[in-house]
Write a protein that binds this DNA or RNA. Structure first.
Lengths: 342, 342
DNA sequence: GTGAAAGCGCTAACAG
DNA sequence: CTGTTAGCGCTTTCAC
């Protein structure tokens, strides 16, 4: 015996399907008499009726489902940045009566495949989290496809292009500038930048901020003090070794672009038995959930990842429920915590 | 201009909707002539047609969506156990062409609310992960409701009841017995058990295994050497202090029931400046992703959480695609890793 | 107030 | 082989 449906109730109550639908969906309505309403509800309860959400969604043309897309090959749930953003998204989604659909990554990392995007028609909208495998190009292509397919979406993290999209992020240039300011105030003159890949939007904007910050202090960020490790520990060590090998130009402080680079930095000072901040100061751009647990505690500028997730979901739901609303781009403030590494 | 649908294509091609559906869905079919097929496909491409998954799902009566339910109040994504299981689930789901829907927790922790379960009609089946807030009673009630609602599901973690359900877990009793064996072989006679709550199925079965293991060695697990912290650090410290206070009966080894208790144990030895394993040996039941990063490395029996997730998803999909198939209960083997804490 | 009827967009059984 | 028809279960006009 399969699940009871509206017509089953209608039959037993001796009313039409429409009457049942209305009686069940509207708390106080004159569209159906009080007596019939109670009768219908009673039968529904007895039968253990629960609506077929699928049919409902088809008729209403909305699923109350938000899709999540993260272009990344590795399991996304181990990534602390994603986990934090997800928690934020989940918090909003819960509060507003939606649910979250996780789309599996596929195809080339960094890009959403066409199929994937189209498959997303199951949801009312998409949250797109850019990762470190997303180049500016990837991001632009994705935006283009989403727009072409007329899919509502909000993007999280590292978009600095000009398209009018819903976006939540932080101002990396301002963050980097503040970082330089902090270091310069403490007497540092030779600052190095340990980054992941020069193609990443974040890298580009951090660099911009660093340069401005240095310029404001009458200093210069030397090209040889910019290192990209490709998120490879060995490569990171090679870069760091080259910096520390030179007597004269040896940096006194290193600014790391994200969590995993910070970890590599920690591994390095441990391996080379350097004292921090004695031999070198470390200043990080990080996200709290992960870096917060590191020992020694890093001095860091923290990205409000949880809030980014929350806000992104709210913006998306708003744009679903009020389609005429304008796209908005929100830049959240970063926070600063002094640790023992500077 | 809204999304093109089958009828749009049918109209332009001068054929029926059904013909279009078939031409698009079956690669090689004789149901529609090759010429018409190409015509139809061409038009579909030109129009940028993509099917409405919702309508498709309604007609096919399946969504290829799996629902995840985790009865827990805290954000689930920060929990390493969940993250690992999720990754496993995601791996399978991806491979088999499904997607994952995350249901928000709600109501009293430990239980799935009625509404939540019914709402799950959106999915083809449910994966249910028991957490440490699930008592045996909660679990049984949940199973009951799921069965009553005729919802397919697979349960992960800590079910030892008799219902014929799809289930993936580990044999905690065997694990605990092996743990005792290991400790006894190394000369320990006084072994204590640090657990979370005595109502948890896992607790009960670990205890059973510990007792059997002790008995097999002609020893006894003293009631005063069983401590439940309710996952509260202060409580854990009180328990541990009481154990270490006594001269005579002081345990020489402590077996911890899960990751967070292990962490409390680590906190404790650090706070009291105990040497491990000098003052006390620590043996853990843990899951690798999390405990694997701890320093010093714990000697531990690891739960294959990723595999549990993978297998649970596979079992669920199997039971969806072959409904006549029998329910199965799978107990995965645990692994052992020697650290420096014993 | 109430019920009949027309979709939502697609699939599948069934004639031709 | 092809096209017509009847649903999937629900919502929502629109007459009565």
């Amino acid at each position: 015996m399969s699940a009871p449906k509206l017509s089953d109730i209608a039959q037993r109550a001796g009313v039409s399907v429409a009457a049942v639908s209305i009686a069940l969906n509207y708390k106080e309505t004159t569209r159906v008499s009080a007596a019939k309403r109670e009768l219908i509800r009673g039968i529904a309860r007895d039968l253990g009726y629960s609506p077929n959400e699928l049919a409902k969604a088809l008729a209403e043309r909305r699923t109350r489902l938000l899709g999540l897309m993260v272009p990344m090959r590795d399991p996304i749930f181990f990534n602390q940045f994603i986990a934090q953003a997800l928690s934020g998204i989940q918090a909003t989604v819960m509060r507003r009566g939606y649910n979250l659909l996780i789309y599996s990554p596929s195809g080339r990392p960094g890009r959403a495949t066409r199929d994937q995007i189209l498959e997303s028609r199951f949801t009312d909208g998409l949250i797109f989290i850019n990762t470190r495998s997303c180049t500016t190009r990837d991001i632009n292509d994705t935006i283009h496809e989403l727009e072409a397919a007329q899919i509502r979406f909000t993007m999280i993290n590292s978009y600095y292009g000009r398209a009018a999209i819903n976006y939540v992020g932080v101002d990396d240039a301002a963050l980097a500038k503040a970082a330089v300011r902090y270091l310069v105030d403490r007497g540092h003159r030779r600052i190095a930048f340990l980054s992941g890949a020069s193609t990443l939007p974040t890298h580009i904007h951090l660099l911009q901020g660093l340069r401005r910050g240095m310029a404001a202090a009458g200093l210069e960020l030397k090209p040889e003090h910019i290192g990209c490790s490709d998120y490879d520990q060995t490569k990171a060590f090679t870069i760091l070794d080259s910096w520390f090998a030179r007597r004269k130009d040896r940096p006194t402080a290193i600014f790391t672009a994200d969590d995993s680079l910070l970890v590599h930095m920690y591994d390095y000072v441990e391996a080379r038995q350097l004292s921090v901040p004695g031999d070198v100061a470390i200043l990080a751009r990080a996200n709290s959930a992960h870096a917060g647990g590191l020992r020694p505690r890093p001095t860091a500028f923290f990205i409000p990842t949880f809030e980014m997730g929350q806000l992104a979901a709210d913006m998306l739901i708003n744009s679903i429920e009020q389609p005429e609303q304008k796209r908005q781009r929100v830049v959240l403030p970063f926070t600063f915590t002094e640790g023992t590494t500077t």
